[in-house]
Amino acid sequence: MRMIQLSDLHFGTERPEVMDALVTVMHQLSPDLLLLSGDITQRARRAQFRACERLLARLPPAAIMAVPGNHDIPLFNLWQRLVAPYAHFTRTFGDDLLPCHDSGQVLVVGVNTTCPRRHIDGTFTEKQIETVAHRLKASHARVKIVMGHHPVDAVLESDERNIARGAERAVRTWTQAGMQLYLAGHIHYPFCARLERRYPGLSPECWTFQAGTAISFRVRDHKANSFNLIEWLPAQQALQLERWDYTPAIEGFLCAEQIQLPLRGGAGSSGSG
């Protein structure tokens, strides 16, 4: 099963040439599941969500699962922010802010890490932690992934403040319930890391995979526009993670990093290239 994670599209700040290249590579890769990990828009305006809908209509047919980011909550429309903060998001993606996709072999559980009253900062509530844990435990899928917008780990010291509140409680609860991979965005800084680095005592086979910004000019630290590809390889009992970067020289996306993660009880081996 092939999944592609697009994050921090920030419609309203999109680069048309990068968006066209994304459409091309998506048709080449033909994912089974498209994962949108928040900040789909820049200012949560209806026109920006419509722009996203037009992009999705250009992509090959695939199941779509999305969670909101803090930019998908109105900033200047205070009435809507407090009374109906997710109105435009749910009009496009449905009412479930904790969506779930279970193919039998692969389970992906979404979690809404945003908080309208705090706007930027993310949080995992106790109710969310327990709900996600229940879904992880109830599934017989071989691969169990959780996706939110806010990160549970950081590489740069300046990103420590962006780690969602309750992250340690969430990570430890969910890994005990079977989570092998946590996907997020928000910081526009792609990386892949073992969760035990920050949370000692966890299995070394539990990871986080951060996505960069896919099409926005709001890149960071000279990082390229990028997206993540996650593929379940049943023969190897492994997840293959790839980061694809936009490369101006070819006006297209190329695979820039590849890591193969053996799953608990699996027979694969880890490496990068």
Rank of each mutant, 00 (worst) to 15 (best):
G268M: 04
L98F: 10
A249W: 11
A62F: 07
V152Y: 01
V109Q: 02
D102M: 01
T125N: 05
S139T: 15
S226D: 11
K144H: 11
G38M: 02
G38N: 09
T90V: 10
W244K: 08
M65W: 07
Q42I: 03
G94P: 04
P262I: 01
T125E: 11
I129R: 06
L254F: 09
R15V: 15
P99H: 06
L181W: 06
L202G: 10
Q240W: 00
N228E: 02
P16W: 03
D32F: 05
Q180G: 15
G271K: 11
R118T: 12
D72W: 03
N228G: 01
Q258I: 07
D159Q: 05
H101G: 01
D96G: 04
Q236K: 00
T90F: 10
A167M: 05
N228H: 05
S270D: 05
A66F: 03
G273C: 15
Q180K: 09
R118L: 14
R243T: 15
G271I: 01
S103L: 00
E17C: 07
D121Y: 15
E231H: 02
D102W: 00
M179L: 13
Q180I: 00
K127D: 15
T131A: 15
P190K: 02
L59N: 08
S139K: 04
F49W: 05
A57G: 12
Q80M: 10
R264L: 14
Q105G: 08
P74V: 07
V132N: 09
D32R: 14
T208H: 09
F93V: 06
T24L: 08
H88E: 14
Y199S: 12
C52V: 03
A51F: 01
T114Y: 01
A57H: 04
R142A: 10
L22W: 00
N70F: 04
L78V: 14
H10Y: 00
I259Q: 10
A211M: 09
I187F: 04
H119M: 09
Q180A: 04
H101K: 02
A154T: 09
R172W: 00
M26Q: 09
D102I: 08
A84T: 14
A177N: 02
G185R: 03
A193R: 13
P68Q: 05
G148V: 06
R118D: 11
H101S: 07
I4D: 02
E257M: 13
S139V: 11
D121A: 15
I250A: 05
Q5G: 03
A256T: 02
H186K: 08
R43E: 13
H88I: 07
S139W: 00
G104L: 02
P99A: 09
Q236H: 01
D153I: 14
R135G: 13
S158N: 13
R220F: 04
E257D: 11
S7T: 09
R165G: 15
S226G: 04
S139Q: 03
D39H: 06
G185A: 07
H101F: 12
L195N: 11
T131R: 13
F217W: 07
P248K: 06
E160N: 13
W232A: 01
F191Q: 05
T173P: 00
L55M: 01
P61S: 07
G166C: 11
R81K: 14
H186Q: 08
D221F: 12
R135N: 12
L241C: 09
R197D: 14
